[in-house]
């Protein structure tokens, strides 16, 4: 018997291999589902499958965490770069907006004073001397017809900046109102009191002084000073400064007042040079 089994073992195996699955299929078709041996085997395999699924799930979680962290890091870096770029862009846009606003105000000046022939220039430097208050300008356009000369008035949309001191092809030096060499004939806007504004040359500020005021002239703090048009440099009615303090002595013919220039020179970027010969003295 054992010899026969050994001799036909391959045949028996082949038969078993084909019959057992077929039997299983037939039993299943009969509606009885899996046989008890299958059920027992599946119950045995269950914990192994659970363990494998748990292990792979753990690996998947690790992988997902790693990928998520990696993505987050990359995203973080990308966002940092984007923020830096946007900040830079914002700063540039703010600069452009501010320049735009300044240029609009300049255009407004042109609109308000159409009789003035203006030429644009940009502040590029300031004199470092402790005695003088001078700015260097670069001309916006090179125009051979508009010849620039010393003593031409320089203004901004706020008012008087100063007058040209020196002219170099595309650059000019401007003596500010606060330069000690500067003298501007002015009126008070309120009651047309006449005086002379001259610079003090202070390094710490751009302070000026108003002199040649008669003792009986009524000048108060806050009075606005405008150019008188006399002197042949500045047209009439350009704002020069504001009276901040009046010093009336108990004796003497004159009184004096401290003046704060109307133009904040420390923030000045664009100016106009008044080039028209007929400009000084004209009424607006």
């Amino acid at each position: 018997m054992i010899d026969a089994l050994a001799r036909y073992r391959v045949h028996i195996l082949v038969a078993a291999m084909l019959l057992l699955p077929a039997l299983s299929m037939l039993l299943a078709r009969g509606g009885s589902g899996r046989n008890p041996v299958d059920r027992a085997a599946i119950n045995l395999l269950g914990p192994l499958q659970t363990g494998a699924a748990f292990g792979l799930g753990f690996i998947e979680d690790l992988w997902n965490d790693y990928v998520a962290l990696r993505n987050m890091k990359e995203e973080n870096e990308r966002l940092r770069q984007e923020i830096a770029q946007l900040r830079e862009e914002r700063a540039r846009l703010v600069g452009v907006l501010q320049e735009n606003a300044r240029l609009r105000q300049m255009l407004q000046l042109k609109g308000e004073r159409p009789e003035l022939e203006l030429r644009g220039a940009r502040v590029i430097a300031a004199d470092v001397s402790p005695f003088f208050r001078v700015l260097r300008l670069r001309l916006d356009t090179h125009d051979a017809d508009q010849k620039l000369e010393p003593r031409m008035a320089v203004v901004s949309h706020e008012g008087v900046v100063g007058q040209i001191l020196e002219v170099y092809d595309d650059y000019v030096d401007v003596m500010l109102v606060s330069d000690p060499r500067s003298n501007i004939d002015v009126y008070t806007q309120r009651n047309r009191t006449r005086g002379m504004v001259y610079g003090l040359g202070h390094k710490r500020d751009y302070a000026c002084r108003m002199g040649y005021l008669r003792r009986r002239d009524e000048v108060h703090d806050g009075d606005v000073l405008v150019t008188s048009g006399k002197g042949g440099i500045f047209p009439r009615e350009l704002l020069v400064g504001t009276v901040t303090d009046v010093q009336r002595k108990e004796y003497g013919l004159n009184q004096e007042a401290s003046v704060e220039p109307i133009v904040d020179v420390s923030r000045l970027e664009e100016v106009f040079i008044i080039t028209g010969k007929a400009a000084p003295g004209q009424r607006p």
Binding site: L18, L20, P21, A22, L23, S24, M25, L26, L27, A28, R29, G33, R34, N35, D38, A41, I42, L45, Q49
Partner: peptide, 13 residues
């Protein structure tokens, strides 16, 4: 066959 979802015996066959 046990691990698969096919009807019993099908994968084995």
């Amino acid at each position: 066959d046990l691990l698969g979802a096919a009807p019993p015996g099908m994968n084995a066959l």
